[in-house]
Each structure stands twice: as C-alpha cells, then as structure tokens.
C-alpha cells in the first residue's frame, strides 16, 4: 500500500513535469531580526546576548511573496496577503519586482530602497552556484541543496531546488539552478523564504511589468556598488543598514 502510494507520488510529480510549466509559487518570507542584528559588527558581545536573551523565540516577522513563472520568464513580487499576527492591519510594502527573462537573458528589477525607487536593467549574469548532496522536501517536491555567496551583503545563501520543476526561476533575486528554487535560507536562518504552495495554471498578464516604470535606472554593477557603499557607511555610523534595505 505504502509502496503504491510512493509510486503514485513519483508518477504524479513526473506527469506534472511533463505537462505544466507555468503558474505561481506562494512563498512565506520570515525574518529573524535578533539573528540579523547579532551580525552587526559594532555591537558588543553583551548587547548581542542580551538581545537573544530578551527576544529569542519571538523575533520572527513574516511577509508573503509570489513567484510567477513560465518556461522563459519569472516575476517575483510582494503578495497582498496579511500576516496572521497582524489582526488585519496592513502596512505599506515597498515596491519590489524582480523580473527575469531567461530566453532573452535579461533582467528588470524595480526595487525601492534607501527611500528611492531604482530600476535595475541588465543582462543576466550567471550566478556561481555550488551543488551539494542533501535532499529535502519543500511543498511536496524533493529538493536538492545548492549554495551561493553574496559578497556585498556578506551573506551565505542556501537554496533548495526542485529536481522535478524544470525552471531557472527562484525567489528574491536568485535564479539559475537546474530546477525551481523552492526555499532559501540566508545566513543560517536569518531570513528564510519557503514555498508553501505551487499552483500550475495558465498565466495572463501576471508576468508583465507595469507599463510605466518610475525610478532611477541602474546597471547591476552600479546597483551592487551603491548598496556596498550604503552598507559600509551605515556600519561606520553604527546603524543597522537593513532597516532601509532588503536583507
């Protein structure tokens, strides 16, 4: 019986692989802010320990995001869904659109940060993924582990990509693995973005960018240089840069 079930599951994921290549992934993005703050180099050991002593276990903050995808494109945005703890109150979400075209090898990201909206337009530059041997299940898919480093934000990122979803798409600004990325873990659990549901459906306008894009245009290199400068400046001022910048 059990074996039958497994076979069914395996076959199920195979058929989905064969038929569906378009839809939306629902992600939950959780930030553990005591972990984030304890990476600030200007804090003393006692301040870090006090923080985890007082707030550990209730320092998580959840938001929801969506990843639309088809064979050649993806678009990742903030969802309008509200947090369970919010009692329905809603705050303004910063503009955040990460759009990838794998066929044309281009990217267009609209990111509001440090008080301004920026449009990052560039060609896609292949990320340097390392593939590891661990397996785990995320949202009903067996995923394999991969890792990458972000030298600007000083982050070690672990990604789990589905072996049976042939797409290069992923959450946040990550992409370029042999399967869809269904979970990422930034700096040992500081931020975890995890898929909760995958819906295969024919998409309409969801992958399109807004007609009018307002904001300062940057290349990827210029964007990285700007945030690098900002992070260094805030660290020098002993202020957490990630209050104003997506971690």
């Amino acid at each position: 019986m059990k074996k039958g079930l497994i076979l069914f599951l395996l076959l199920g994921s195979l058929t989905s692989l064969a038929q569906e290549n378009e839809g939306v992934v629902y992600f939950t993005r959780t930030t553990y802010w005591t972990k984030m703050l304890s990476q600030l180099t200007f804090l003393s050991k006692q301040e870090k320990e006090r923080m985890s002593y007082m707030f550990a276990g209730k320092d998580d903050w959840k938001v929801y995001t969506l990843l639309y995808f088809n064979e050649n494109q993806s678009k990742y945005i903030n969802s309008e869904e509200k947090n369970e703890e919010s009692e329905g109150y809603d705050w303004r979400k910063e503009e955040y659109i990460v759009s990838r075209n794998f066929a044309k090898n281009t990217m267009t990201d609209v990111i509001e940060m440090i008080g301004k909206t920026y449009i990052i337009e560039d060609s896609l530059q292949t990320p340097n993924w390392k593939i590891l041997n661990d397996l785990k299940e995320v949202a009903g898919h067996i995923c394999m582990k991969a890792m990458i480093e972000d030298p600007v934000k000083n982050q070690k990122i672990t990604a789990w990509f589905a072996q049976d979803l042939p797409s290069s798409a992923g959450p946040e600004r990550l992409w370029g693995l042999p399967g869809m990325i269904l979970e990422i873990d930034i700096n040992d659990g500081t931020v975890i973005v995890q898929a909760s549901k995958i819906e295969f459906k024919k998409l309409g306008q969801e992958l399109d960018l807004p007609k009018k894009l307002k904001g300062k245009k940057l290349t990827e290199t210029a964007y990285q240089e700007m945030i690098d400068k900002f992070i260094k400046e805030k660290i020098k001022e002993e202020v957490n840069p990630y209050w104003m910048l997506r971690y």
């Binding site: 599951l9 041997n133 661990d134 299940e137």
Partner: peptide, 15 residues
C-alpha cells in the same frame, strides 16, 4: 524518501 523526507520533513543528507 517516504518517512524521512516527506513525513518527518527532515533534510536527508546523502554523501
């Protein structure tokens, strides 16, 4: 696969 990965939701590391 069934017990470790699906039920226990545990990463199964294979080297």
């Amino acid at each position: 696969i069934e017990v470790v990965v699906r039920t226990a939701k545990a990463p199964l590391t294979i080297k």
